[in-house]
Design a protein around this nucleic acid. Structure first.
Lengths: 152, 152
DNA sequence: GCCAAAAGTTAGACAAGGCTAACAATCTGC
DNA sequence: GCAGATTGTTAGCCTTGTCTAACTTTTGGC
């Protein structure tokens, strides 16, 4: 039941010891951080499939800037969590759930990126910052970003 | 030198195998992630010292929403990295370097927060999102945020 | 169709950041 | 000033995310 809640970035954290809003905020941020890497991978895999026709571990390693064994281990986790399927020595496929997550990530990424550029940031820095920011933007903030990016 | 370059587990971060801007971006984001927790702690410690007169582990644990042993281990790392000093069973102090980092974090936090509120976000969500976003904002973006927040 | 290069996997190490359980020190209220 | 509560520490375990070294499988050039 792990990754369904990836989607609701601003979901109420059930854990948080009652009372301290700050603790809840930090716990929420930590929860988001735990999912960032999975989101990055899924987004990249979707992109590779779209651009190259398939997602091969070697390309994932290159794009992510990590080594092949790191990719292998991470892919195992993603498979375990139901986001991808894979067979030995074969390229990687997204599950239905993985595709949904990828789509949502791409959507968020696009909005954050367009927002930053609209703000006046150069495209390169915008791309870099969007990569970091996109995982920490609530639905509400995303809506404001979209409105700003689309304003005439 | 706000930078701290914490945990040089790999001594020299090999700054991205040449060529792939994407890989560099991801490596940058991962590098930022490594410092987030330290920054959160240092910022919180500064705040506790300011508000309560001292930073006690029990309060850090409460505010961060983690257990006491987790705090202890993290504080040991912060001490090892020169951001704080501590004595057994005593409260925590920031080093010069820790104070500098805290100041910079607070500055960034303030700007991001004011920016989000200026954008139209409710203060509570703004506080929550700022917590996540502040670690991923480049100098350039921060400047644009500040300008937007201050515009008349 | 063979064989070397490229790609992928496995094994094993290590640090960070979490946890619980158990113990030690400090503080407080009589 | 002492007992019990609170606070802090230590030990040990787990997962994630990273690496290197060594091995296996697939692929492509000739």
């Amino acid at each position: 039941m792990t990754n369904v809640d990836l989607q609701k970035t601003n979901a109420v954290e059930p854990e948080a010891r009652a009372g301290d809003a700050r603790a809840e905020a930090f716990q929420g941020v930590r929860a988001a951080r735990r999912n960032e890497l999975a989101e990055d991978y899924v987004e990249l895999i979707a992109e590779l499939i779209h651009n190259q026709g398939e997602a091969r571990p070697v390309d994932i390693a290159t794009k992510m800037g990590v080594t092949a064994p790191t990719v292998a281990k991470t892919l195992d986790r993603l498979a375990r969590d139901g986001l991808i399927t894979r067979a030995k020595y074969r390229s990687v496929f997204l599950t239905e759930e993985g595709r949904a997550l990828a789509k949502e990530c791409r959507h968020r990424h696009e909005i954050v990126l367009r927002f930053l550029i609209r703000l006046g940031l150069d495209p390169e820095t915008a791309e870099h910052d969007a990569e970091g920011i996109e995982h920490h933007v609530s639905e509400r903030t995303l809506a404001l970003f979209a409105a700003f990016a689309n304003r005439s």
